[in-house]
Nucleic acid binder design. Structure first.
Lengths: 228, 228
DNA sequence: CGGACGTTTCGGCGCCCACCGAAGCCCGGC
DNA sequence: GCCGGGCTTCGGTGGGCGCCGAAACGTCCG
């Protein structure tokens, strides 16, 4: 079986797809949490998770009697988002998690949703970052402005990739990924521009939700010209 | 079932995956050709193709007693390539179609493979194109150089997207997609820098192969600094 | 008009695989 | 040491779905 079919088959099972979506924000989840997300028993979960790990899509870290699972890398998260951004099949329905979900959420460790793509647009359009082989590099003026905002550029540069695009499945436009995406997100949450929405019920996907604080809205408007 | 699982499930079937891979170069294939690629009968093919069309991944154009199928859009081709570029599963084998396959081939209508990613790297690294919202734009000097080479920029601009990245599954690095990618490819084949390798046997995938002519190798080196 | 060919529909078969319950394993805590 | 909880392995079951052959449909051609 070709590589394409093998991988797509892994993602294509409803239970496994639910688990992968739950892992999209980049957090590590235990087998039990994955079981609840997928709505199946422990035995079935074990088999499915094993398949995901052996395929290399998911990596596992044993700690005590828990086993923590996370996506194997940012490319995996990016590929999943790309798939989700493909034309919706048949009768196009509303977004599965409501419109609030689209404003801002975490993808791997960077901001996605409307704010994510707006940020990408401003950073590239206003000359904060410029094209570089394999992604983006900070411009001279961009570096100064980013540091002034409290973004740790040195930490961003230690990532495998400094900055690159990740296709946003709800907006169908790219948002910023890579070390810079992570550090900007870190800055925004540290300064309380964005805050996490804690999961209400068993829906772990809600963990991805971010809310924009009033202060964050002002700051995004002032610093980037983004209406949140 | 979530959108992710639905789409991945469609791609995940070996027969459908083989068809989609055969459609990657962007050509339209009849149901009979797709049947041969997938190695299944006409009846099964009809059902599988129907699923692909109804999902929106593939579009169909009836002409006489033939029905021509093609990928619904460049995003679909891009998503497929992204999936194929994910970490190979289990015992890593050699490339399915030999190493020659990696030098150059068509992805949708643009050049992929080693030459494709090298071209991407030079165009972005040497200032032919620069970052723009949603992709790339030609720089002033880039425009002049491209036109001098015989690239039809006006035609490239009429495409939905002028230039953007497409992840290359064999090289794991981006190559150039969008109208500009198509027009550069058109120029290269028109000037016989690259030529098509016609399929030897029933393997329609081989249709994607491109070969670099001696003249093409000289031109790539002189114009872009690419060793082919 | 009839035959050939490409394609679709129908009916039926068979296999794969995702699921569960029960038992076993490993770790941490009392 | 013994229990409890998280996780895995094993055996068995069932449903979904991908396949085929046969028949029907539509189109082109002689």
């Amino acid at each position: 079986m070709s590589n394409l079919a093998t991988i797509a088959n892994l993602i294509g099972d409803p239970s496994r797809a639910a688990m992968l979506q739950a892992l999209l924000p980049g957090e590590a989840l235990t087998a039990g949490e994955l079981a609840r997300v997928a709505g199946i028993g422990a035995a079935a979960t074990s088999a499915q998770v094993k398949a995901l790990v052996e395929s290399g899509l998911v990596s596992v870290h044993a700690q005590g009697r828990h086993r923590y699972h996370r996506l194997a890398g940012e490319e995996v998260a990016s590929a999943l988002e790309t798939l989700m951004a493909l034309p919706q099949v048949s009768p196009r329905k509303s977004w599965p998690h409501g419109d609030a979900f689209r404003q801002a959420r975490l993808c791997w460790h960077h901001v996605a949703g409307r704010i994510g793509v707006a940020l990408h647009e401003r950073l590239t359009g206003d000359g904060w970052i410029a094209a570089a082989p394999g992604g983006w590099a900070a411009t001279g003026s961009g570096e100064a402005r980013l540091e002034k905002l409290g973004v740790d550029l040195a930490a961003a540069r230690r990532a495998p990739r400094f900055a690159c695009d990740c296709m946003d499945w709800s907006e169908r436009r790219p948002h910023l990924s890579g070390g810079l995406g992570r550090e900007i997100t870190s800055m925004m949450t540290r300064r309380l521009w964005l805050t996490r929405i804690e999961p209400l019920a068993t829906d772990l996907l809600q963990r991805r939700r971010l809310a924009c604080t009033p202060e964050g809205a002002r700051a995004l408007s002032a610093e980037f010209g983004i209406a949140a």
